[in-house]
């Protein structure tokens, strides 16, 4: 396997997947705890809709910047989507999953309709939804190198606040905690990590990093602090195994990492059942 690591694109892919995995596996704990796993899928679609909108607007309005940097629109759309999804509709008594479902449907439809009208057509859409981690660019890697420590630091510093507002928001709100503000910060971090994750690794891998390690951690952990430790470990092992096996067996890297994460989840679940 060591000869594979001598290949530059493999090292870059491994570094990118580790950085994305670290961020999303940690954030995924709150996603699993809040039972909003589809927020990852919804924000992925919002991000895709942002890129589609940038491509469409660049063509229709002749905005050169959007043509060269569609990711800027994806980032803006994802952050706006994250802010909208963070608002709990208190007056209409609508569950969070309902809001996320509406967001997913609207963003997916918008992305497809805009792509249908863009010059690139369906080819662009495939590129948006199934980005290849092996094709990660040095610029994307630099962005991830900057973003990852920011997300990790924010989660570490505000872990107890995120846990508090995720665990029982009504109790937190009743005791004077600004739940909306903490939700907004958590969702903003989610939006950033998802937007950059999709750009470098595609929607499938991003969604999987967000859900599978956190879920495995919660399923298997015996103590609270085991949850983040396990989630991160699962993401790291899945990334390394997935990338190396995909190169060796000449299979797509993203789905191979997902397969490794699923395999880890399955094994850990069996072990947890056997030792319960």
């Amino acid at each position: 396997m060591s000869e594979l690591l001598e290949l530059g694109f493999v090292r870059d892919a491994l570094a990118a997947s580790l950085l994305i995995g670290l961020m999303l596996s940690l954030l995924g704990i709150f996603v699993v705890l809040r039972r909003i796993v589809f927020v990852g899928a919804a924000l992925a679609q919002v991000s895709a809709a942002g890129v589609a909108l940038a491509i469409f607007a660049a063509e229709a309005l002749g905005i050169e910047f959007l043509h060269d940097h569609p990711e800027s629109m994806a980032l803006a759309a994802t952050l706006a989507g994250a802010a909208l999804l963070s608002v709990r509709p208190r007056k209409v008594n609508l569950p969070s999953e309902g809001v996320i479902g509406v967001g997913y449907a609207v963003a997916s439809t918008l992305a497809i309709l805009l792509i249908a009208r863009s010059p690139g057509g369906e080819g662009d859409s495939l590129l948006l939804f199934y980005g290849n981690i092996l094709a990660v660019t040095p610029k994307e890697l630099r962005e991830l190198l900057f973003l990852c420590p920011v997300v990790l630091a924010a989660v570490s510093l505000f872990y107890k606040e995120f846990l508090l507002v995720s665990f029982n928001p009504d109790s937190a709100r009743a005791s004077g905690v600004r739940v909306g503000l903490w939700n907004l910060l958590l969702y903003a971090l989610l939006g950033l990590a998802i937007a950059f994750g999709i750009r470098a690794a595609g929607a499938l891998l991003t969604f999987s990093y967000l859900v599978l390690p956190g879920l495995a951690g919660v399923l298997v952990a015996r103590k609270t602090w085991h949850v983040p430790a396990l989630a991160i470990a699962i993401a790291v092992v899945g990334s390394v195994a997935g990338i190396l096996l995909s190169v060796r067996w000449d299979l797509p890297s993203g789905p191979m990492i997902v397969a490794a994460l699923v395999a880890e989840l399955g094994v850990l679940w069996l072990v947890a059942r056997a030792t319960a």
């Binding site: 665990f167 919660v218 952990a221 609270t224 949850v227």
Partner: peptide
């Protein structure tokens, strides 16, 4: 209302 999935 308290989720028991987390091992707290």
């Amino acid at each position: 209302a308290i989720d028991t999935v987390f091992p707290v």
